[in-house]
Design a protein around this nucleic acid. Structure first.
Length: 902
RNA sequence: GGGCGGUUGGCGCAGCGGAAGCGCAUCUCGUUUACACCGAGGGGGUCGUAGGUUCAAAUCCUACACCGCCCACCA
């Protein structure tokens, strides 16, 4: 069979993928003879399409899973998808909008039908894209956060926490997205600085000026000035506040202030939280629309006036003129009125740090509302301990601090969402019991009267026996289901179905970007400890962000993305993976541009052609390769096997420490620059059956080293080797065993000679370049000891070829020496030579080495050095001094012989 | 405001106490028994700045500067 000279990734990858899937190569089952290794995938959103971030994240996981699989572990990569509440609902809402409909038009039930239909149609798109990336998940096990069993786990957890008193319902200021019309958790509100204004507004004082005690500072005025960035919220003001120690406003303490436009009377409260330095030192207090004011409101028993609806449009709690206006419209209108009334003292440009909805980027409105929360402090306690004690380790380690810092300051988690797509809260209300409550502007603790927390709808209210019962309309935060992912995917808490859980839990490593450290990683740790009593994973591997070549984060909205599917099309999944792994220094961001992927493509082609060459030679020679028992090894063979051993060690070590880029680089360097550049070149013209076996042996083991990073091409070549030899090497490389070191039982005396020859070849090439000889063939004259002649004799052929020489002759005496090392001297058989370049490169070398030599000499002459440095260090320096002296001596005498250019 | 990173050749990174390295880019040469998606070579860096510790500092310490993240209730 002819092998084409270019590797065709498209053709190969589809074919190989199909075989793997058909033969269940990725399946992982409980096996009492194997140790488990498990990674749970960060479930992509069902709305997702594969982007570079996914490609990076999942390639890392796949490399680890494939590595451990080959190492003989029952290596499970658990796949699945996340229902992604708000994100998915938004997508389907947009679809609906194309028909001119809103979700309310068709109702909850119909809307959910559409969502499920959408899920069925597009929900697995990303999983198929992961397959084409080569992701070796056990696809039989694919789970979805809204699967029936999974939903049971979610309800279960809610009830457990509720019964433990860790879930409560209450009126608090939460982050509200007026576009998605739902509450958000603190984490879902991303703070960004925006340009705004700080307005200074005059509020009149009710009491007549004469009644005011005339003394310090601002006392003489009949108004006060407050500063605000969100003037429209003043319509909900119910007080103004000052610091009790603020001498400037002592006079104000007994006064009443009139809220302009609304004409509500505001009392003046004193609170130590007020910053004397900021603004005017007087704060307008809007308890229903600002988190700080909310606390003040509770502390001082103020009225809470909610002035906005769920879409941030002002409601009937504001003067008629403003009702129905959007918050920003209202701001403009209000400022106009204030301007007219001359109530604006001044405004100054100001950077506001405003929360933005992490799904639609709308500015979040702090809003008082009745929501469900999880008490986090008790859950955080253990989760802090396991990380502090390194039961869970972060890679890179610095993330430990970030994690702990967040955990120490953790806030309660708002888990109810006013959307339709998600897990309904397992909460029911008895309308009869609830009606007894009274409407009030005063904030009262939310009574649990009429609240029934239950997995299924109760027939009757346990309190009043009434049957007018309805389920809470809200759904749970998406992360309230994702935080169970490491064990709910194994059908926890169903005892019957979750047998694998015992075997595979805890998983070994979680691979993720830092963005979801708090959203997901921290919460999984808490959930694992709370519900399973065990950590969910031992290691957390945090990789960087994917950026473009200018360092800007890749994002769809900026249009600077590189589509991984395009790269797969053009260069192949292996190239994509290889280049990603090579550029992804552990934990640092990845800068990508199209040409980065050429490295991967070129390397794939290199592997391909090396294989092609070997198989070609084997066929030419009619060699029958039916075993890999290596025989008649000479020093060259032992040298390459030793180099392979070193590489295996290095790759093992690096992969075990999650330094995939280092592992990738090590195997790349070995294969290209040692195996191809030297070994193959050396044995080319002495291609015996024994050599062919060494070549195939090294090739096969190299393929195995590459396989985790480049699964497709390595599998394809593995299959070709199987086809073209009689070797019994197993069905698939994906299920084959990881390379072991070749047993080399003696230290080779000739290794030094071989390495000196390689050094000599390199130098001769340099000299020829310097002498402008190009590829001209000249005689290579060598003066060497009798005992080394045999070595040169045996290896004459390839040394001659690689030095581009017409012949090699041994001389008793050289007319001149162009190169010299510990073992031999070399001259080239030419008469007239242009020594200019040669001399200058010699001089440059000599200069550099002399500088170093001087330093070493000075060090050795330094008494303090001899006194303080370790014996070993001094010994090293002495050796270095000796070597350098010899080298410099050689160079200097060479320069002298050719007549210095200086 | 607090915290965490980073600053090494044009670009991206490694090195983290004893002779400045790698990949890409660049330049020169090359129709060599696979591969031009190749081979052989070359040029290019006083390791952000200023101090300090040390016999010795890119490497440890302290400030500072710039860049980038994250957290935070400065209205």
């Amino acid at each position: 069979m002819e092998i084409p000279s270019k590797y065709n990734s498209q053709e190969v990858e589809n074919k190989i993928l199909k075989k793997w899937l058909e033969r269940g190569c990725f399946n992982a089952d409980r096996d009492s003879f194997k140790k488990p290794f498990c990674i749970v995938i960060p479930p992509p959103n069902i709305t997702g399409i594969l982007h570079m971030g996914h490609a990076l994240n999942n390639t890392i996981q796949d490399v680890l899973v494939r590595f451990m699989r080959m190492k003989g572990f029952a290596s499970l990569w658990m796949p699945g998808t996340d229902h992604a509440g708000i994100a998915t609902q938004n997508v389907v809402e947009r679809e609906l909008a194309k028909e001119g409909l809103k979700k309310e038009d068709i109702g909850r039930e119909k809307f959910l039908e559409k969502l499920w239909a959408w899920t069925d149609e597009y929900g697995t798109t990303i999983l198929n894209q992961l397959k084409s990336l080569g992701a070796s998940c056990d696809w039989r096990r694919t789970r979805f956060t809204m699967d029936e069993d999974y939903s049971e786990a979610v309800k279960d957890v809610f009830i457990k926490l509720y019964e433990k008193g860790l879930i409560y319902r209450g009126n608090y200021i939460i982050n509200w997205c007026p576009r998605c019309k739902t509450a958000l958790s603190d984490e879902e509100s991303a703070h960004k600085e925006i340009d705004g204004w700080l307005y200074y507004i005059r509020y009149p004082v009710k009491q007549k000026r004469s009644e005011a005690k005339p003394n310090e500072g601002t006392a003489g005025r009949d108004y006060i000035i407050v500063a605000t960035t969100r003037p429209e919220t003043m319509l909900g003001d119910t007080a103004v506040a000052i610091n009790p120690d603020d001498k400037r406003y002592k006079w104000l303490k007994e006064m009443t202030v009139i809220l302009p436009i609304v004409n509500r009377e505001l009392k003046v409260i004193e609170d130590a939280a007020i910053d004397l330095e900021f603004g005017t030192g007087i704060v307008k207090v809007t308890p229903a629309h600002d988190p700080v004011d909310f606390i003040l409101g509770k502390r001082h028993n103020l009225e809470f006036i909610n002035i906005m609806g769920d879409d941030a449009v002002l409601n009937e709690n504001v003067p008629d003129d403003f009702i129905g206006m959007d918050r920003f419209e209202a701001r403009a209108a209000l400022l106009e009125v204030l301007e007219e009334k001359k109530l604006i003292e001044k405004k100054q440009a100001y950077k506001i740090s405003a929360g933005h909805c992490y799904r639609c980027h709308t500015i979040v409105e702090p809003r008082l509302s009745l929501q469900w929360f999880v008490k986090m402090k008790p859950l955080a306690k253990e989760a802090i301990k396991v990380v502090r004690k390194d039961k869970i380790k972060f890679y890179p380690a610095r993330w430990k601090k970030v994690y702990l810092n967040w955990m120490y300051n953790i806030q309660d988690w708002c888990i109810s969402r006013q959307i339709w797509w998600g897990h309904r809260l397992p909460v029911y209300y008895c309308k009869t019991c609830q009606q007894k409550k009274t409407e009030s502007r005063k904030l009262t603790p939310e009574s649990l009267k009429g609240v029934i927390v239950s997995k299924v709808k109760p027939e009757k209210c346990p309190q009043c026996r009434g049957n007018d019962i309805c389920q809470d309309a809200d759904v749970l935060d998406t992360w309230f289901s994702s935080w169970l992912w490491p064990f709910a995917t194994f059908y926890w808490p169903n005892k019957e179905k979750s047998k694998d859980l015992k075997y595979f839990y805890p998983s070994d490593v979680l691979v993720t970007a830092s963005e979801i450290l708090f959203f997901w990683v921290a919460r999984m740790i808490m959930a694992g400890l709370e519900f399973k009593g065990k950590i969910p994973f031992r290691d957390v591997l945090i990789h960087g962000t994917v950026r473009d070549d200018k360092g800007v984060k890749m994002s769809k909205s900026l249009g600077n993305t590189i589509d991984p599917l395009d790269i797969i099309d053009k260069f192949g999944a292996d190239s994509l993976r290889f280049s990603l792994m090579l550029s992804a220094a552990s934990g640092s961001d990845v800068y990508l541009s199209d040409d980065k992927f050429l490295v991967g493509r070129n390397f794939a082609n290199k592997i391909w052609n090396a294989t092609r060459f070997l198989l070609l030679k084997i066929r030419e020679n009619n060699f029958e390769i039916d075993n890999l028992k290596l025989k008649n090894l000479n020093e060259i063979d032992r040298w390459i096997l030793g180099q392979l051993n070193n590489t295996i060690d290095k790759v093992n070590n690096e992969l075990e420490n999650y330094r995939i880029n280092e592992a990738t680089k090590a195997s790349y360097d070995f294969f290209w620059h040692t195996f191809c550049d030297w070994y193959i070149e050396i044995v080319k013209d002495n291609f015996t059956l024994d050599k062919a076996k060494v070549l195939i042996y090294v090739l096969l083991n190299s393929l195995k080293l590459f396989h985790p990073v480049m699964p497709f091409i390595t599998e394809e070549i593995f299959q070709i080797i199987k086809e073209q030899t009689s070797l019994d090497i197993g069905a698939f490389i994906v299920n084959s065993s990881w390379p072991a070191k070749y047993k080399l039982n003696r230290v080779d005396k000739n290794t030094k000679k071989l390495e000196s020859v390689i050094e000599t070849i390199k130098t001769v090439r340099n000299i020829k370049t310097d002498l402008n000889l190009g590829t001209k063939k000249v005689k290579l004259q060598v003066k060497l000891k009798e005992e080394d002649k045999k070595f040169w004799e045996v290896n004459r052929g390839w040394i001659q070829r690689l030095t581009f020489s017409e012949s090699i002759v041994f001389e008793e005496k050289l007319k001149r020496v162009l190169y010299e090392n510990d073992l031999w001297q070399v001259n080239l058989g030419i008469r007239d030579i242009d020594t200019k370049n040669f001399l200058s490169s010699l001089e440059k070398k000599a200069d550099n080495l002399t500088k170093v030599l001087d330093k070493v000499a000075a060090r050795l002459a330094n008494e303090k050095f001899l006194r303080n440095a370790s014996r070993q260090t001094i010994e090293n320096e002495k050796n270095k001094f000796g070597e350098l002296t010899v080298q410099v001596g050689r160079l200097k005498s060479l320069i002298k012989a050719f007549g210095s250019s200086k």
